[in-house]
Design a protein around this nucleic acid. Structure first.
Length: 954
RNA sequence: GCCCGGGUGGCGGAAUUGGUAGACGCGCUGGACUCAAAAUCCAGUGUCCCUUAAAGACGUGCGGGUUCGAUUCCCGCCCCGGGUACCA
């Protein structure tokens, strides 16, 4: 009986569905394990062969953990709100709900064919009211909370109100937009509206007028992680900075905990590093500078307070309120002109023209608090308003940007650190992180680290500043001017936002038929009838961004149908948090930051059991495409063959192409012809589905591209060999491999094993369909072990020692590889095993049955079929992963390679327990050794047990 | 610029508390079976020298070092990939 994968796979996929094989419930008799995939955004293109890589890996691990006796939660769902569906709706008028549902159906179909062990009864879709009810609910909790820095956790805003009523703002240590100071009496005197404005300054979800990333072509604002190099990440549209009133999440309040929490996680070092950089902690000091002849004092942030004696000027960001405040009448015109210039510059211009030095003098002088000297105050766009205080003390001697500025405007440069290399700071700045202080009064001779400490002490003693930690991480802009997203559960009273009563949740997204903004520039929700008011008050028209729905979906999977809570107590208690999370590294600064923030907040308020949601994280690499090329001849000329491109055609053909204008497509190898012409050509991407083993299906190609139907094909013995290259897998490059096609030809089990066999999970690697035969052959070979005589057969004979060694060697390797997520090498171990058992003609149940169980995570369909034929009722999922026995792996004697001074000369059979002296005797006695030992004396014998004997001779 | 990761046959990749480099697979070559093809099976396959074999030399990006022994450790470079950037 042959291996008919198609029948087998259909049969078992149906069985799993009918028997709810993968349904999982709370079971207190078993330890739990939670394996999570990053759920997909269902795009119109469907899955390509690269997408399931992570799903297959997590599925293999989930199945393995189940065999190991764990109660495994392995859910799947859809991140269904998003911009592409809405952009498509704007173009075609198709409602996003319809296209999204269609795409989901297609995704599900494709995933089902791969044979995943997902518990589909737990599926979630972020666009469904029963799901986003809890997204809205969490938003209200954020709105009603503030961050108590002294307690390092979120607290209810109500507490803040009570506190203000008794003691005003005094002694409050809370994360806020601006530091406020008021008394209890002042608080009590405020109107409702004024109080709301004060509270807004502290809420974790807050409304604020800030500079935001506005993308005019998308008609919406974007978060920082959605913008790269001044362009929108997905579409590449330009983004400008614009002051707008927007919802934000006070993610920055959690910056310190987000950073410190990384130390507790089993994530790759590189991913943690990306998050560390993104959060960007710098330690330094805030220091006040007095302004000559004025009341105002300007606060700056610096990480290098030690260099304060080298401060020769001060620079303000153009957006700093001090910029115009400190401008003198004489300089007013210049400053006005500069500020106008700076306001016009886009983010992208600023970023691409970093080397351009611009600035203007305000006319004011500040006082260096340590030297007492007057220093000019300048304005320049190289100082960012959003970081630190929007003002800096400039140390041109030891900062490259300050140096460039000083040189450009002829400002003085002073050296205050000497690193002993004797470089001239007038020429280039010396960005020394070590060295000793010079020209610095009481700091002279001090090393840098000590000087930093002393300056901070001195500044604090004099009450003109304090040590401070600054973060690069900004608050997340949380509103989007679009339709296809979660509505905010918010209405406006006296212009101030109020949360809806929780009993009104979910606030459902209304159906509309035009998805563009309204004529008055309102978000699309402005078009919805019956939407605009609740109890006579207007509703928020913005919707939430994509990351809102994906920030806590892992909690919802634990208890997806609960209508009373985001997740019920029992489910939360049992499932706890995600043990293994598998997904792409591209989410490092987006989803993986927001989720951690969101979860930490829920943890603070008792709705998550742990501060960190994802204990272990694996980033699967990208699978790249392997593009195929044909070569279209453009011109011809007599000459030498073109070695570099390996395109060979005859002069005759080249001339024919030239004269008659015939399209000529040359094979990579070309025809073997006497006369050869050098030609120039154009690479044409050929649909990889028309290419097998690099050979082109020429008839198929003509049909696929009718404009080449009349083309002349230059072949090599009738075969047309394509060139190839590794590129990103993309529709436009015709190199997309669809998993459905692979399954059709080889089956899901082969696809699963081949994706694992391609290389290490975390590495990106090219998809090359040519290699898949090897894995397919393995499965067929494995199948044939049971069908040596045609029908299924498994012998009850006792296995030989060699067969047991093969079995236990394989079990040990596979188990160890599983724990290390080294799936490619475990596939290799199975192949070796099958080769050895085939050679031994082993059909023994005692050997094969454990292998069926061990193989089942990789190739579940074929394993089920064999398990059933071996006489077991029910699914192989209920089996136990076989234990390996060391006794079959221990050898008493080893064949050691024997080396002389490091060079391997021969092999020697020696007992593991032999002493070096005994081994030395045997080496001397070995006939082959004599020629290597001639005239030499053995100095010592080094024995590495089980590995190597090295003889060191004089 | 800064930070992180990586460089091993024709290809994807194995192997590192320092111990036979190239597992496994693809590809290629030869053979068996076949009228033939496909499929399957068997053998070979880092480079050089060589009719072949034995033996040997070289070989994990480059140059040094430590060691009986280095793909693995140390120092100095080169190249590739990713992240990030007037963050003071």
């Amino acid at each position: 009986m042959e291996y008919h994968f198609k029948e087998i796979e259909q049969k078992w996929q149906r069985y799993w569905q009918e028997n709810d094989t993968y349904r999982v419930e709370i079971n207190h008799d078993k330890p739990k394990y939670y394996v999570l995939d990053m759920f997909p955004y269902p795009s119109g293109a469907g899955l390509h062969a690269g997408h399931p890589l992570g799903y297959i890996a997590s599925d293999i691990y989930a199945r393995y953990k189940t065999l190991k006796g764990f109660n495994v939660l392995h859910p799947m769902g859809y991140d269904a709100y998003g911009l592409p569906a809405e952009q498509y709706a704007i173009r075609t008028g198709q409602h996003p709900a319809i296209t999204t549902a269609r795409n989901i159906e297609r995704y599900r179909e494709q995933m089902d064919k791969i044979g995943f062990s997902f518990d589909w009864s737990r599926e979630v879709r972020t666009c469904e009211p029963a799901y986003y009810k809890w997204t809205q609910w969490t938003f209200i909790q954020l709105f009603n909370s503030y961050y108590a820095r002294d307690e390092q956790r979120a607290r209810p805003v109500e507490e803040l109100e009570r506190r203000f009523a008794t003691s005003g703002s005094s002694g409050l240590d809370a994360a806020c937009t601006v530091e406020l100071a008021f008394t209890a009496e002042e608080w009590k005197a405020k109107t409702w509206r004024e109080r709301q404005e004060v509270l807004m300054n502290y809420r974790l979800a807050y409304l604020s007028d800030t500079l935001v990333n506005w993308c005019p072509l998308l008609g919406t604002v974007l978060a920082n992680d959605e913008v790269r190099e001044g362009l929108s990440l997905r579409e590449g549209y330009p983004v400008v900075q614009k002051k707008m009133r927007q919802w934000l999440l006070r993610v920055s309040a959690y910056a310190g905990r987000l950073l410190d929490g990384l130390e507790t996680l089993e994530w790759s070092e590189s991913l943690k590093e990306v998050q560390r950089n993104w959060i960007g902690r710098s330690r330094g000091a805030d220091i006040l500078f007095e302004i000559a002849g004025r009341e105002e004092r300007v606060e700056i942030f610096t990480t290098r307070p030690d260099t304060i004696f080298g401060v020769t000027f001060m620079v303000l960001a153009p957006e700093s309120p001090y910029a115009s405040l400190l401008t003198t009448a004489e300089e007013a015109a210049n400053v006005r002109e500069y500020l106008a210039y700076a306001a016009k510059r886009t983010e992208r211009e600023r970023q691409t023209e970093v080397k351009r030095v611009t600035g203007v003098f305000t006319g004011s002088l500040a006082i260096n608090p340590f030297t007492g000297e007057s220093i000019p105050v300048w304005i320049s766009e190289y100082v960012l308003s959003g970081y630190g205080t929007g003002a800096i003390m400039a140390v041109p001697g030891h900062d490259a940007r300050d140096h460039a500025f000083a040189r450009h405007f002829g400002l003085p440069i002073v050296q205050v650190i000497d690193d002993g290399e004797g470089r001239d700071v007038q020429e280039a700045s010396l960005d020394a992180k070590s060295g000793r202080l010079v020209n610095s009064g009481f700091l002279d001779g001090q090393p840098v680290t000590e000087a930093i400490r002393r300056v901070i002490d001195e500044v604090e003693r004099r009450g003109i500043g304090k040590g401070k930690v600054n973060y690069r991480l900004r608050d997340a802009i949380f509103s989007r001017q679009r339709y296809w997203g979660e509505p905010f559960p918010v209405y406006y009273k006296e212009g101030m936002p109020c949360p809806l009563d929780e009993s009104l949740l979910p606030l459902e997204l209304p159906a509309i038929d035009t998805f563009l903004p309204t004529e008055t520039g309102e978000p699309p929700l402005g078009r919805a009838r019956g939407w605009t008011t609740v109890e006579g008050y207007p509703l928020e028209l913005n919707t939430m961004p994509g990351f809102a729905g994906s920030s806590a979906y892992y909690l919802r999977y634990m208890d997806p149908r609960n209508d009373e809570a985001l997740v019920g107590d029992e489910a939360l208690e049992y499932w706890d948090s995600v043990d293994l999370y598998v997904g792409g590294a591209e989410h490092a600064t987006g989803h993986l930051i927001y989720s951690r923030f969101w979860n930490m907040f829920l943890h603070d308020t008792g709705r998550a059991r742990r501060p960190e949601p994802f204990r272990k994280l694996i980033n699967q690499g990208m699978i790249q495409g392997r593009s195929s090329f044909a070569y279209r001849l453009l011109t011809s000329a007599d000459g030498e063959q073109w070695e570099a491109t390996r395109v060979y055609v005859s002069r005759e053909i080249a001339r024919e192409a030239e004269q008659r204008g015939v399209e000529v497509l040359s094979s990579r190898l070309g025809e073997e012809l006497a006369g050869v012409a050098a030609v120039s050509f154009q690479e044409i991407h050929v649909d990889v589905n028309l290419v097998k083993n690099d050979l082109l299906d020429m008839e198929g190609f003509k049909q696929w591209m009718p404009e080449y139907a009349g083309a002349r094909f230059v072949t090599d013995n009738g075969k047309y060999a394509c060139g190839h290259g590794i590129e990103k897998m993309s529709k436009s490059l015709f190199n997309v491999v669809n998993p459905d096609t692979v399954i059709e030809e080889y089956g899901a089990d082969t696809l699963r094993m081949y994706e694992m066999f391609l290389g290490p999970l975390e590495a990106s690697k090219p998809w090359d369909t040519r290699g898949i035969d090897g894995v397919f052959k393995f499965l067929r070979k494995f199948w044939r072990l049971f069908h040596a005589e045609g029908d299924f057969h498994a012998s009850d004979a006792a296995p030989t020692r060699a067969e047991m060694e093969t079995l236990h060697k394989t079990l040990k390797k596979v188990e160890q590889d599983m724990e290390n997520f080294s799936f490619n090498t475990s596939v290799a171990a199975f192949m070796i095993c099958a080769n050895e058992l085939t050679a031994a003609r082993c059909d023994k149940r005692a050997v094969l049955e454990p292998l069926v169980v061990a193989l089942s995570p990789f190739a579940p369909h074929v394993a089920e079929e064999l398990w059933q034929k071996l006489g077991h009722a029910g699914s192989v999922t209920r089996a136990t992963f076989p234990l390996w026995d060391e006794k079959y792996l221990v050898k008493e004697e080893f064949e050691y390679p024997v080396s002389f001074n490091g060079k391997v000369r021969f092999k020697l059979l020696a007992a593991l327990s032999a002493t070096p002296a005994e081994i030395e005797e045997r080496v001397k006695a070995a006939p082959a050794a004599t020629r290597w030992l001639e005239g030499k004396t053995i100095k010592k014998v080094i024995v590495v047990p089980g590995k190597m004997i090295n003889v060191v001779s004089a």
